[in-house]
Design a protein around this nucleic acid. Sequence first.
DNA 1: AGCACGCCGACT
DNA 2: GTCGGCGTGCTC
Length: 728
Amino acid sequence: MTIAKVEPLVTTRALRGPFDYLLPERLGDVGIGSVLRIPFGRQRLLGVVVDVAESSELPPERLAEPLEALEAGASAELVRLGLWVASEYCSTAARGLELALPPGTAAAAGPVAARRELRAEATAAGSGALGDDSRLGSRQRAALELLGAQSEPLAAEEIKQRAGADLQTLRRLERRGLVRLREVEVSRRPREVAVGAPAERVELNPAQRRATERIVAALDSEPGAELLLWGVTGSGKTEVYLAAAEAALERGFGAIVLVPEIALTPQALARFRTRLGDRVALLHSALRPGERRDEWERLRRGEARVCVGPRSAVFAPVAGLGLIVIDEEHEGSYKQESDPRYDAREVARRRAAESGAVIVAGSATPRPESWLGLERLELPERVDGRPLPPVDVLDMREHPGQAGPLHRETASALADVAAAGGKAIVLLNRRGWAPFLSCRECGGGWKCPECDVSLVVHRGAQQLRCHHCGHAEALPQACPGCGSVTLAQQGTGTERAEPELAKLVAPAPVFRLDSDSAGRRDHGEVLARFEAAPAGILIGTQMVARGHDFPDVVLSVVLDADAALRFPDFRAEERTFALVSQLAGRSGRGTAGGRVIVQTLAPRAPAIAHAARHDTPGYVADELERRRALGYPPFSHLARIELSSADQGAAQAAAEGLRDRVGALLPGEATLLGPAPRFRLRGRHRRQLLVKAPERGPAVRAIREAVYAAAAARELRGAALSVDVDPQ
DNA sequence: AGCACGCCGACT
DNA sequence: GTCGGCGTGCTC
């Protein structure tokens, strides 16, 4: 008797698996990771085998048999990883396992099918038939001539196009033994985006070589090692990643390369592809379902051994994993913002520890916890040997009541660059025309009906938009409260800054890059035009600061650098430091040298002052001291429990119930705050509980038990819950 | 989750 | 008298 322990793929928290099923012989090779269609009460569900046993606690007559086994499943290693994520982030087994399954398995549309293609090749008789007096129709002859010139079987579709022979013709030739037809599985491959990536192997400089040697040594003898690659922008971290991946492949290992966001995957992919060829696969959610499935399948079969992608790629089915690269390890996007709120960096650590892989986390501005905890490899200089540019911090408090977002000095610096025919980048981390609109008569404002946030003026679209839920309404002509027609557009976003800059630097062109300015796919095109232009200004949101290389940029400007500091968030400092440092690293890489201007209302803030001096060690030391004094991570652990519901009372009641349960289970040294209201989002009222504890394990365990008990008691009905361990 | 069973109020 | 409200239990 073989029993499969199965977790049904359902979204509820109230269901506690696994459930036992009797495995009949006819299902064939079913093991951990197999996906089964199972009878479950009156329903038919998909379920994942999480274990196989010889006996069950239940008598055999109470056990049901699965209806069928699906073709694709996950490896036992990834099943363990998925269950670990479910447990660690207090989610459900189903949601953890879904991450490990072939893409689309749990989707309503069901798993994506493989693409099959009919291919034909000429047999020996077929090649011979052209020469002898076999009677052949003109289409038949054309097909055989075409096939005779091929060394590989040709797709039927292509034969039709090139020789005019359709499927019927080919079938007839097949019956005469002149052609062999075969159905093969073909992989749908993501379209490559050509970006000017250096294809040729460059000689590593001494620092790059030392770093690579250290990583290779770890590959050879220190499974589970974690290394921090700290290199200023432009110091050639990617070359080190490439060399490390090559070394891993030479040793028969596979590799995963995590990049912070989908927009950056084409660049990363291109560089890995040109060096490592077809052994590189790309996985992310913006691929077409068929492409995504096929890239996943290429990895599972071992045809591809390196996976490039954003956080979800940490679950890529790479067997014999030897290396995980985490590029820009400080980026917040490694954290998933919905349940399970996993941190890809933590999942990578877990996976590396289990599989014996080596982690290389790279950044110009590492997180304080990485700086503190990891062995550091340093790339202190840019590959071009140029020094980092000088940074001027401009105090906007001395600049009151000025029309426009630019400091006098910033404006003249930009005008000078344009006049000299140079290039500059301007970062303004705010989309739209104006962040909010208000009535000059009564002071009234416009809020999103679904979220508790101000609507943003988008003048081109003549709309007010919510940047949280996407709600849009027509730009009002008058105040609905008092009827006044004098409305004030407060503040400046990228849309408004663009024409102001254009006026300032004319006739030099201005290019705008934000998620409004171009469709996602056209971002590359905007960047390419900026790159190709002899002179001009690029203005945009933080995407202008990331991942792009423009050697001829001589001036970089950050407007409102302290915007993030105004949020009550202990990571605001860290984010501001990273943003300013990143942009500073983008300037003056070419021969012209460079300059950086930072406009801020908080010129003395440590994050800004240290970034201006390019002083990462100094900043991290200060920040760690502050964290220690305040008892923040890494000197404590935080966990946030968020409850949300369309019904305010339900959110509050669920939060209060959970507070009592968590409080009763939490160790004495831990503190519990809340429920505190968070701003309404997408029509959902939200409450949060915050746990601060010296040890992460016991705190997470207490939360997990409390959540499971509350779900079992149906106290969470009508409210959604997600637990954010180590929030960003 | 999804479904059945079961125990109380207002309707053809 | 029954239709249906949703509270409770169960699914291998």
